[in-house]
Computed example of a mutant assay.
Amino acid sequence: MTVFNLGSINADLFYQVPHLLAPGETLAATAHNRGLGGKGANMSVAIARAAARVVHIGAVGTDGRWAVERLLEYGVDTRHISEVSEATGHAIIMVDPQGENAILIHPGANSTVLETHIEAVLKDASDGDTFLFQNETSAQREGAALASARGLRVVYAAAPFDADAVRAVLPMLDMLVMNAVEAEQLSASLKVALPDLPVRDVIVTLGGEGCRWLNTDLGTDTQFPAIPVAPVDTTGAGDTFTGFLIAGLDRGLPMEQAISLGQQAGAIMVTRRGTADVIPDLKDIEDARLA
């Protein structure tokens, strides 16, 4: 099976700071580095490192060739990443000593993906494949509609959160992944409780509290406790969780096992500084032996 990931590709610019910046404040960073990121790229790397086949659908500028090469090095099929005239997307990421972050994103080339591009890629898809996307590219609704029409499992990681963006794709979704704040915002905006959403599987990540899986067909709401670790940087942990979750499902794991795999990968991820470049693989999970 294959995961087709319509996803952003960013240059992540990391700044270690004494505390997260307040409005009007000027603050000196204690360290800086650049890495591969973007929610889409992070998830593609996580899927590849979880031993599933992933085809990335996206765009970079001429300044982003290094990012495409890095994705290829990590095992991602990059043949459907376009090179456009826009600059590659980038993110400015502040990380404090407790591992909390604040992120500013410039979409750049991520906003140039066209429906025709997605349609051409999905001609190679079959009804056992998965279409994954996030709210960091253009043509999200068009891509979801094309994938749904072809019988793919359609999964939306609803971040950065926008209620209107979720509303636009909700009829096409088989799975919706959100954090607790996003879930609360969505319920308030739609005036619908999570169990009443028209999506079969709803996954809500709860940070240090673990996560929930709601199966709206069966009416079940299952809690999964968090794996205790000492975090140093939470950036990319949710993307890592989602990538391993989707890879596990693609490989035929039951939902409970796929969620557990995602939690283990996410727990390792928060003990590392960086994003796509430091996402763990299956051997890391086996070596860590996290409960």
Rank of each mutant, 00 (worst) to 15 (best):
2 T>E: 08
3 V>M: 03
4 F>G: 01
6 L>C: 06
7 G>N: 06
7 G>R: 04
10 N>K: 02
16 Q>I: 08
16 Q>R: 10
19 H>P: 10
19 H>R: 13
27 L>S: 03
30 T>S: 10
35 G>T: 08
36 L>W: 03
43 M>A: 12
44 S>R: 05
46 A>P: 05
47 I>P: 01
48 A>L: 04
52 A>V: 04
54 V>Y: 00
56 H>M: 14
56 H>V: 09
59 A>Y: 01
60 V>S: 02
60 V>A: 01
66 W>R: 11
66 W>C: 05
69 E>Y: 05
73 E>S: 14
74 Y>T: 10
75 G>H: 02
76 V>M: 02
77 D>S: 07
84 V>M: 04
89 G>M: 01
95 V>M: 03
96 D>H: 05
96 D>V: 03
99 G>R: 02
99 G>Y: 00
100 E>P: 11
100 E>L: 09
106 H>A: 13
111 S>Y: 04
113 V>K: 00
114 L>C: 13
114 L>I: 13
121 V>D: 11
123 K>R: 14
124 D>A: 12
126 S>G: 15
126 S>L: 15
126 S>Y: 04
127 D>Q: 14
127 D>K: 13
129 D>A: 10
132 L>K: 05
134 Q>N: 12
138 S>Y: 07
141 R>T: 15
144 A>F: 14
145 A>Q: 15
146 L>H: 06
148 S>Y: 15
149 A>I: 15
154 V>L: 12
156 Y>A: 11
179 N>S: 08
179 N>F: 05
180 A>V: 15
187 S>T: 09
188 A>G: 11
189 S>A: 13
191 K>S: 13
192 V>D: 14
193 A>P: 02
195 P>H: 04
196 D>T: 08
197 L>M: 06
203 I>Q: 12
212 R>A: 02
213 W>Y: 12
214 L>P: 10
214 L>S: 07
225 P>I: 00
229 V>N: 08
230 A>I: 09
232 V>T: 12
234 T>H: 12
234 T>F: 09
234 T>E: 09
235 T>I: 01
237 A>E: 00
238 G>T: 06
241 F>Q: 03
243 G>N: 11
246 I>F: 05
247 A>H: 01
252 G>Y: 11
253 L>C: 13
257 Q>F: 00
262 G>Y: 02
266 G>V: 10
266 G>M: 04
270 V>K: 00
272 R>C: 03
273 R>C: 00
274 G>Y: 01
277 D>H: 14
277 D>P: 06
288 A>Y: 06
290 L>P: 08
291 A>Q: 15
